[in-house]
Computed example of a mutant assay.
Amino acid sequence: MPHIRVRGIELEQLKKVSKEMIDDLQSIIECPRDYFTLEYIHSTFIFDGEVSKGYPFIEVLWFDRGQEIQDRAASAITDRVKKFGYEDVCVIFTDLPKHKYYENGQHF
């Protein structure tokens, strides 16, 4: 935890930036590195009936850490992904209630 799902960028780009992105987030969030999961999701964007390029779309599922930490995490993710020349990067946070998150049958 946190779980980060990424779509709309090339797999090789995500691989290149993954270590530094997790380094940044580990420092901001102050949780162990092995708590993070980073998932690449292949997707196809459609606009007006045609395949379109789309843009990076990053979802972060985590336990709420407050607005300041969230802002810093969004900025760090955006900065890393924009290095590939993307004009727009979308980062969405979903707060998971600890009592609804189970690991090995036990909630937090």
Rank of each mutant, 00 (worst) to 15 (best):
L25P: 11
L25R: 09
Q26G: 15
Q26K: 15
I28G: 12
I28S: 13
I29D: 07
E30I: 11
E30R: 15
C31F: 05
C31S: 14
P32M: 11
P32C: 11
R33S: 13
R33Y: 13
R33V: 14
R33M: 10
R33F: 10
D34T: 14
Y35A: 13
Y35Q: 11
F36A: 09
F36E: 07
F36V: 09
F36K: 14
T37F: 02
Y40W: 09
Y40A: 04
Y40K: 06
Y40C: 04
I41Q: 10
H42V: 07
H42I: 03
S43E: 06
S43D: 08
S43A: 14
T44P: 00
F45C: 11
F47G: 05
F47H: 13
F47C: 10
F47Y: 13
F47W: 10
F47D: 08
G49E: 05
E50S: 14
E50A: 14
E50Y: 08
S52A: 14
S52H: 07
K53C: 00
K53L: 08
K53R: 11
K53W: 00
G54I: 06
Y55T: 07
I58K: 01
I58T: 01
I58Y: 02
I58Q: 03
E59A: 07
E59T: 08
V60Y: 03
L61D: 09
L61F: 08
L61N: 09
L61E: 10
L61S: 11
W62Y: 05
W62S: 06
W62H: 04
W62L: 01
W62P: 01
R65D: 05
R65I: 01
G66Y: 06
G66Q: 08
Q67V: 13
E68S: 12
I69Y: 00
I69Q: 06
I69W: 00
Q70L: 07
Q70D: 06
D71C: 06
D71Y: 03
D71W: 01
R72M: 05
A73G: 07
A73I: 06
A73T: 12
A73R: 08
A74C: 13
A74T: 08
S75N: 11
S75D: 09
A76W: 04
A76V: 04
A76N: 05
A76M: 05
A76D: 04
I77E: 03
T78R: 10
D79V: 12
R80N: 08
R80P: 00
V81D: 01
V81F: 05
K82D: 00
K82T: 05
K82V: 03
K83P: 01
K83Y: 00
F84I: 03
F84K: 03
F84Q: 04
F84A: 04
F84L: 02
F84N: 02
G85L: 04
E87R: 14
D88I: 14
D88V: 11
D88M: 11
V89W: 00
C90A: 12
C90D: 07
V91P: 01
V91Y: 01
I92D: 02
